[in-house]
Design a protein around this nucleic acid. Structure first.
Length: 497
RNA sequence: GGUCACCUGGCCGAGUGGUUAGGCACAGCUCUGCAAAAGCUGCUACAGCGGUUCGAAUCCGCUGGUGACCUCCA
């Protein structure tokens, strides 16, 4: 078996992963609500589950990864009447709902691509599955766990809780929920405060609306995920992921709905990533402390000291375990940038190392490298501990640099280990962690030539001990953002700042 | 108010009851005309107070602090 252990939010412990269908994995992740721009906080689940996706593939599973686009607009109940988030924003921006949704979907995809997240297998939209959602609602009503009031349909949580275990995932106790003193307006229609809407009647001004057996309206908060997950992954599937903040009520409601509709719990393993915080507080719209991806990548935000490359952000996310909070700071991002540069440079250097012809008995270092590589699988199998994987890769960096810099003899590594090492770095950095170099892949051949001309002049000057000239060349290039390095072998290399 | 987490060295962060996580920063050294890079070395912490234990940052309790969820939220 794979030996993969993952933390199941449902049981609150690590469990051995065993797919329902051998060799196949069904993975569902709650996607974005495309009524606005994605921000740094949104980056976390999609990077996290991209790693899950990639690693499962690496283990040889065939993965069907479904990630929805919420484009129907969940309504909000804090005001007097339900209002459609999407429609509301559209009015402000004078856009058609579908136009708005399209714009932010595109922007979301743009961000995902920059993060080098693999595409999901299926990316279903809520608006594209109205029929499926209605069918599911009807089914639940027939089974007696939902009721209609004034064109809206609500799920009867109290009744459900009497017949099935409720609140397991989020640790809620139904009686406590019922007793909550919290008063929310516009809840008169519900039999109990804990009930949630499956279908909501659309007020006249509501732009998004669909005909239904209960009149014109739109789907409730949670039904889309259940309907689409079961359509594409089956009534029972392996892994459902999302942010911790979705555990309640979203995921708890999904479980209840699906359990009634299908007669059994929908998901075997629930995975939840922790939040990204900023100054210790969760980054979120309601806190008004978000940094949008466009701002992050451009540096155009009062809290940002500079722009951050998407790969830096990805790396920064991966340096922490996904179930820990991750605090944003310029210092942390900048540390990640330097670290990633060093790691990637070592990776490139590694590619150029050639095995020593000298045959030697395995050195201590050689043995250590092999051990470090072996551990990578263990770390990843232990609930996707990318932080430890990266730590081990960093332990290897001085060996690579040492061989290149001459501090270590080439025969320190056996040919076999070197081959393994090269393959491992490729596999782990590129395939599993999904990292890329920071240098844009643009064509630099002309720049290369220009620099090499300057480098030659500088070399001449140095031979003549005309250090004034040589230093001037280096310093001026440095001001232009081009850093020259005199290598030990007399060659000159450069990097772009 | 209820439920549940978390509190690690200058900063970010991993963590198993007994062994240096790692990164960034910093200091010294090697290399270098100088620099950069690289290498080596150093910096050894676990909120406080009790308890369990031969031994606890790691288990238990109390106190303090922070946060999340309970309402749309990744």
């Amino acid at each position: 078996m794979s030996g993969l252990q993952l933390y199941n939010s449902l049981s609150r412990q690590k469990e051995t992963f065993e797919p329902l269908v051998p060799g196949h994995v069904g993975l569902y992740v709650c996607g974005p609500t495309v009524s606005g721009e994605s921000h740094l906080g949104h980056a976390r689940p999609y990077v996290t589950f991209d790693i899950v996706h990639r690693y499962l593939k690496h283990l040889g599973f065939r993965v069907r990864y479904v990630r929805n686009i919420t484009d129907a607009g969940h309504f909000e109940e804090e005001g007097r009447e339900a209002e459609d988030k999407v429609a509301e924003k559209a009015k402000l921006e004078r856009l058609e709902p579908m136009e708005l949704v399209h714009k932010y979907t595109s922007l979301f995809h743009w961000g995902m691509r920059l993060f080098n997240n693999l595409e999901p297998s299926i990316e279903p939209t809520a608006t594209g599955h109205i029929i499926e959602q209605q069918r599911m609602i009807e089914d639940i009503m027939q089974k007696g766990y939902a009721y209609e009031v004034n064109g809206s349909v609500y799920f009867d949580v109290k009744k459900y809780a009497a017949d099935y275990p409720y609140g397991q995932l989020s640790g809620r106790v139904i009686d406590e929920l019922l007793e909550t003193t919290r008063e929310l307006e516009g809840q008169d229609e519900k039999r109990n405060k804990v009930d949630f809407a499956l279908w909501k009647a659309a007020p006249p001004q509501h732009i998004q609306r669909w005909p239904s057996p209960w009149g014109e309206g739109f789907p409730g908060w949670h039904i889309e995920c259940s309907a689409m997950a079961s359509k594409y992954l089956g009534s029972s599937f392996d892994i459902h992921g999302g942010g911790m903040d979705l555990q309640f009520p979203h995921h708890e409601s999904e479980i209840a709905q699906s359990t009634i509709a299908h007669g059994h719990a929908p998901v075997r393993y629930w995975m939840h990533n922790n939040m990204i915080t900023i100054n210790g507080k969760k980054m979120g719209k309601s806190y008004n402390n978000v940094i949008k991806l466009t701002e992050l990548f451009s540096g155009n935000h009062p809290m940002l000291e500079q722009a951050y490359h998407p790969m830096v952000v990805r790396f920064y996310i991966l340096q922490t375990h996904y179930r820990s909070t991750l605090d944003f700071s310029n210092e942390a991002l900048q540390a990640s940038e330097k670290a990633l540069r060093r790691l990637w440079e070592a990776y490139e250097i590694l590619g150029g190392l050639v095995p020593s012809s000298t045959t030697t008995i395995a050195s201590e270092t050689d043995t250590k490298i092999r051990a470090l590589l072996t551990e990578l699988d263990e770390f990843m199998n232990d609930d996707f501990n990318t932080a430890k994987v990266i730590a081990n890769l960093f332990e290897i960096v001085p060996v690579i640099n040492g061989i290149k810099g001459g501090q270590l003899k080439p025969e320190t590594l056996s040919a076999d280990t070197l081959t393994q090492l090269k393959r491992a770095f490729k596999t782990w950095l590129e395939d599993i962690l999904g990292l890329q170099g920071l240098q844009p892949a643009a064509d630099h051949s002309k720049l290369d030539k220009a620099i090499s001309i300057l480098a030659d002049i500088r070399k001449d000057a140095r031979v003549r001990k005309d250090f004034a000239t040589s230093d001037a060349i280096r310093n001026k290039l440095s001001e232009a953002g081009i850093l020259l390095k005199d290598e030990k072998d007399g060659s000159i290399s450069y990097t772009l700042a």
